[in-house]
Computed example of a mutant assay.
Amino acid sequence: MMMSDIAKDRMTHSVRKRGSVSSLSGREFRQKELHGYTKNSRSTVCYTDEPSQGDEASRLTVQMENTYQLGPTQHFPVAIVNQILKDVLTNYLQEEQYEPEHCRQMAKTISEVIKTQVKDLMIPRYKLIVIVHIGQRKNQSILIGSRCLWDPKSDTFSSSVFRNSSLFALASVYAVYFE
């Protein structure tokens, strides 16, 4: 090999590594390089296929942040929900008499109204379960129970009881934090 062949090989290797392509001919490129003028010059496109180790160190490092939360940022407002339950039960059942078919429909309506009003509080990431029981008052007793599997740190409930001369009502709202 001659000296010019070795130089061409180095130049080719350098071009492949750096990825620079010049639209100037070899003679024009050398004249521009030697004399530093830009008359009749053409554009040069450069790109990098393989970054050198110096380039990797100069890049900005991306810092990742864990955004997973282990609990609610805003707790469920039990006192406000208790007041909503009391107000809705009183407004809907104050003057009502117990009739089985009418009370079945009233239980559905009251539970939807309660759920809508609690959702209007816009408490993030809580799933709501609303249950309303309406029964007749005739000197009998009733025991209503519920069991749930939940985290006592973030999950909670609210309930309210209403009574008039003809009926009783129990409304419960269960708030389960959704992770």
Rank of each mutant, 00 (worst) to 15 (best):
M3N: 12
D5Y: 06
I6L: 15
K8Q: 13
D9W: 07
R10K: 10
T12M: 08
V15E: 15
R18S: 15
R18M: 14
L24C: 04
L24A: 13
L24G: 01
G26T: 14
G26M: 12
E28P: 02
Q31V: 08
K32W: 11
N40T: 04
S41D: 11
D49Q: 10
E50I: 13
G54A: 12
D55A: 09
A57L: 15
S58P: 03
Q63W: 04
M64V: 12
Y68L: 13
Q69E: 08
G71W: 02
F76E: 05
P77Q: 02
I80H: 06
Q83P: 01
V88A: 01
N91Y: 03
Y92L: 04
Y92S: 08
L93F: 01
Q97I: 10
E101C: 08
R104L: 15
Q105T: 11
T109C: 11
T116E: 12
D120V: 06
I123R: 01
P124N: 07
H133C: 14
G135N: 07
S141Q: 11
I142P: 03
I142F: 13
G145C: 13
S146L: 12
P152L: 05
P152E: 03
S154G: 01
D155S: 01
D155G: 03
F157A: 09
S158T: 04
S159W: 02
V161Y: 08
F162Y: 14
S165D: 15
F168E: 03
F168L: 04
F168K: 02
A171F: 00
V173P: 00
V176A: 09
E179N: 10
